[in-house]
Each structure stands twice: as structure tokens, then as C-alpha cells.
Design a protein around this nucleic acid. Structure first.
Lengths: 216, 216
DNA sequence: ACGTGTGAAAGATTTCACAGCG
DNA sequence: CGCTGTGAAATCTTTCACACGT
């Protein structure tokens, strides 16, 4: 992951299969919007830049979704992948760290479209606390527990704070029962095994590119 | 790599090794700033949340940097990894797409620290073209070729535009000789084999987390 | 005939055990 | 003695070939 990326997961199904499933979904939704109604593993593979064996293997971990000799029905394949990824329900998200990156993430439309509902914003900067971003107020990170008491449990926490406070924020989120973390701070987080944490490190990605500029 | 991450690379050294090298570097620099002067593979492994065999194997692809019975000298290990990653020279970057995400990336300090020099901003929105962000003017994407003629070659292009124009932008960048792309649009790019492209897809990462919230 | 689903082979990565050297 | 460097084993992932169903 890419990384860029940290991983964790259940042993049976490869982590990379899960990542590709999400990518297939993006592609299928784009094609659906354009009016396509069926697709073969070959066509999907071409779009995703992988080979068709891998598309079929990835899907076969979860069931038989295609028709032999025909291909896959686009609409039902989308439904199946969304079910596999747990996107057939809303996921409640909070964002911690309302800086430039945090605001950029908030304005990103893709999130809401897939059922990710941002329901809380948190920061530690007194200058930001109390201000509004979109239709949400920024709250103190120390009011996180109260927030969960009053507003119900949170599924996923997005961490967009500086490296030095990322682990502190992660601990707070885990303490209030958050089970998934998406971390943009350039530091590997320590979390209990029942919590899934994925890190996206922008500098790491640039450095990987730098490596391949040199060695090739 | 990721994923979130797309990959590409030379066959000999695992892609994940390169990613980890960049992560090790981040950790070593943090420890260096705190005054640490030497480190063992075991200590580094603990920080990076991998095991010490892997740390040693990753490093051993590139040479023998440690002292048996002692460990690694922090300063010289940092220097070696920076050299391996090609960070001992400046890398000239342009950003295409000066929206929320683009601006957030610009304000991210980590880039400059590692020798990534942003030397051009491009967009296609007439309302943005001509305006200044930091000490750079936003230019029309159609002036990219002129820019390279006048300002010298670009190493890396960061693509922070909507999905529908990402491939168009990638083509333009490749056409003016850019050899590395960091793509934030949720679509896999087609690039010539001599160009390295890494994609960071935020929605994909959330969906992967959603999957593991369910299956575990 | 066509494209899926899958067991087996190939390939890649990680783990391990221990030799080697300060 | 302690910790690195590395060939060999174990594990995981991808590719392949072909049987199967429509």
C-alpha cells in the first residue's frame, strides 16, 4: 500500500484483494453512470490495469457473481461489492484536525457518496474550537467522550493532526470505541488488534517516486 | 501501496521494501532530532511495527550499513537511505489542480524538508489562473510546455484534479518529460512504462477500513 | 462457443536460523 | 557476547490452464 500504507487484516483474504475490490467498485460505478449494463472480467481488468485472472480470483473469494459465457451484470456486481465492503450501511466518521488537509478532506465529495457521514469535527486549537466548517461546529478534542455519549458511536476516525499528537488522538478515539482509523500523520500508530488503522503518508509516496526516478 | 496505491517498479527490489525505507527514514529523522545517535534493527523494527529480520533484509539489498554486535550509526544510516531514495538532490515538482486538496498539499511542510521543491502551479479554472498561492502564480495547464521551456525540466507532477480530467493532465505532464506522477484522482492512470505513477485514493482507503470493520 | 470459477504451478515476499565479525 | 547480514524454508500472492455451465 500502495502502501504508503500500513496494513492489518484477517488472514484469509489478501489485503490487496480488498483494496482492488474498492477500486473495481469505483470503476463499475463510473461505467454504470455511463449506461453500461454488463462487463466481463477482461474488460474490468483492463480498466483496473490488472489481469483478468486476478479479477476473477478476487471476486471468487466471496462467491459466484458472474454468468459463464456471459460475464457480470454490472448492477448486481456493484451491489455485491458494496455489500462485501460494508457500504450498504452508513458509516459515521469524525475528523480530528481541522487544518488545511482536514478541510480538504471535508470538501471531498466522494466520501458522502459512498455512505460515509461526517458527524463531528475536533481540534485542539482554541482559535478553531467553536467555529463552523460546513454545517458542523469544531469541538475540543477533550469533549470527544461527551460527544459520543450524546450523539452515538463513531465507526471511523480520520486523523489529520501533526505527527507529535497523532498517537494521543488515536488513543482518545480508541478509548471511545472507534474501530477504524485513517491516519494522515507521518507516524505509524499503535492500536489494539481489534482496531484497523491505515496510514496515508504523502511524503513517503513522493520518496518512493524519487527512488524509481533514480533506479530504472 | 498502499495502494490506495498503485505500484510499478523494477523487479529486483520489492516495492514494499522501498516504501518501508521511506518509513524508516521518517523514524530515523525523528530520533535524530531527539538526540539519538545509534539504533539496532530491533529498535527500528519496533518503531516501524515490523520485525527486525525485515529491517535487516530491506537494508541488505543496498549494502552493509551496520556494525555487527553494535547496530547502526543513526546519522550515516539516514545519509545512506536518503541516497538510496534519491533525496540527496532537489526534486522539482509541479502541482496541477489548485483546489482544496492541492492547497493543503502545498501547505504541507514535510515536502520541502525532504528536498521537494514546488516550482509551478497549474489549473484549468480561469478564475484561479493568474492568482497567487504562496509565492507562486497559478498558470493555465495549457502553458505547461512553455513553462518547461523557460524554467527547466520537472521531475514529479502532483495531480489533484477531478477524475474526469486526470488522464488528460497525466498525458500533458508525460508529454513535457515528467517521469513521476503522484495522483490523487480516483482513477488508475495509463502511463508509459518509463514513468512511475502512484495513486492515492482516499475513498478506497475508507472502504478498506469499512471492510475490516465488518470482517473481523 | 464463450467467459467464469478454481486447483495447481510459479513467483514474490517474509520469516527464520545461524554464520560472521566486531 | 551481541547484533548484523544472508541463504534456505515457509508463507503469501499472482498467474495459469482448463473444467464447467449457459
Amino acid at each position: 500500500m500502495p502502501r504508503k500504507t500500513e496494513k492489518s487484516g484477517k488472514g484469509d483474504i489478501p489485503y490487496s484483494t480488498v483494496v482492488r475490490l474498492a477500486q473495481y467498485l469505483r470503476i463499475l460505478e463510473r461505467l454504470h453512470a455511463v449506461g453500461t449494463t454488463k462487463i466481463s472480467s477482461n474488460e474490468l481488468a483492463k480498466e483496473a490495469k490488472v489481469n483478468s485472472f486476478l479479477v476473477r480470483k478476487d471476486l471468487s473469494y466471496f462467491g459466484e457473481f458472474g454468468v459463464r459465457g456471459v460475464g457480470y451484470d454490472l448492477k448486481s456486481l456493484i451491489r455485491e461489492i458494496r455489500r462485501i465492503l460494508g457500504l450498504n450501511r452508513d458509516r459515521r466518521i469524525v475528523l480530528v484536525g481541522v487544518g488545511h488537509l482536514g478541510r480538504a478532506l471535508l470538501s471531498y465529495k466522494g466520501f458522502a457518496e459512498e455512505g460515509f457521514v461526517t458527524c463531528g469535527l475536533f481540534d485542539s486549537d482554541p482559535a478553531k474550537i467553536g467555529s463552523s466548517v460546513g454545517d458542523l461546529q469544531v469541538r475540543s478534542i477533550f469533549s470527544l467522550e461527551d460527544f459520543v455519549q450524546g450523539n452515538g458511536p463513531i465507526d471511523i476516525g480520520i486523523i489529520a493532526v501533526p505527527a507529535f499528537s497523532a498517537q494521543f488522538v488515536a488513543n482518545k478515539l480508541v478509548a471511545v470505541g472507534v474501530k477504524g482509523l485513517l491516519n494522515f500523520a507521518p507516524i505509524p500508530l499503535t492500536v489494539p488488534t481489534h482496531v484497523i488503522s491505515i496510514s496515508v503518508d504523502l511524503t513517503t509516496n513522493l520518496e518512493v517516486i524519487s527512488y524509481y526516478l533514480l533506479h530504472r
